[in-house]
Design a protein around this nucleic acid. Sequence first.
DNA 1: CCATTTTAGTTTCGTTTGAAACTGTTGCAA
DNA 2: TTGCAACAGTTTCAAACGAAACTAAAATGG
Lengths: 181, 181
Amino acid sequence: MPPARRSRTASPSPASGQTDLPALHLTRFLPYRLSVLANTVSHTLAKLYEKRFGITIPEWRIIAVLGGGETMSAGEIAQRTAMDKVQVSRAISRMLDSALILRESGDTDRRKALLTLTPKALAIYAEIVPMALTYEEEVTDALSIDERAQLDTLLSKLQARADQLAARPAPVSAQAEQAGG
Amino acid sequence: MPPARRSRTASPSPASGQTDLPALHLTRFLPYRLSVLANTVSHTLAKLYEKRFGITIPEWRIIAVLGGGETMSAGEIAQRTAMDKVQVSRAISRMLDSALILRESGDTDRRKALLTLTPKALAIYAEIVPMALTYEEEVTDALSIDERAQLDTLLSKLQARADQLAARPAPVSAQAEQAGG
DNA sequence: CCATTTTAGTTTCGTTTGAAACTGTTGCAA
DNA sequence: TTGCAACAGTTTCAAACGAAACTAAAATGG
């Protein structure tokens, strides 16, 4: 039997008499750390947006991509915001109710609705963008200039890899893995 | 009027005749990037856990912290997993149903329930930890050794700062900010 | 052309979530 | 003691979510 791969934190075998497994400390586990950090950040921002403008994160994202005054379809918004079409559809419906968005049916293709921000939403955009950037700067103030560049690189590489792995169809079972070498 | 702070991507003023605002490109906005990355990773893992063991991420986290065979209260689990007590309570209730956890009322303090994994859950732990670590390695394989160390540092610093900012009580209004300088 | 498939977006249904209210228990203080 | 605040955990309720089914319009192709 090949020696078990033993990633970091070689904690001695636990109190109970189990075989020694590779230990997993949640606080050092990348998916956990990413999740907690992203949650902390998103939650803080969400409260800010909600308190000041009464909008949610999905709504903010839509405002962000339409903020230049551009017009686009729901599908295009979904792509640009990395939200799925259901989420976008619902956010748009809320925004129609609160008069943040204008929808007109496309002329050439009547399936696609052309979406534009109303002046009210553009006003929110003008106010929210500095707020968002300020928050971002406050967070990244924890880093040196070099570190910010590193962060950019790392996030890009990780996202690319994560996308790759997510696209992988059958997440090879442990058995198959073992058998296959 | 003082020159507007112009963070990166000096996109020329938009087609419409608006005053030039600092532009915000979602794909370069840290909170957005973190959120998308964490989602991609979590979602991939969640599918893995669900498919193979029928457990959710909250359940996995509880298994992770109790996996050494330790016993602790729900509150302690909440702290260690960064979940709130409601989430923990619900996960535990599911795990009781599926016989993954054992609950006995504390002797000295009958409010605190002592929670321990059942052998069934320990078996899952033994199988899931290598899977989780493998996935983590597959993701971090996108990085050099140096970069992995950087990532560790960056995540720690960002989390610390994000926690600080989240704790800040009144998120200074734009007006106040402006007035104050 | 008409029938079929694909695309855009919405709706539905069951589940999950988060905040706040609630239950039961302990600690503290008059 | 008893009365009250703090604590541990659960429940409730309304909003949010994801997957799958659905509607409508456009593209395909016999």
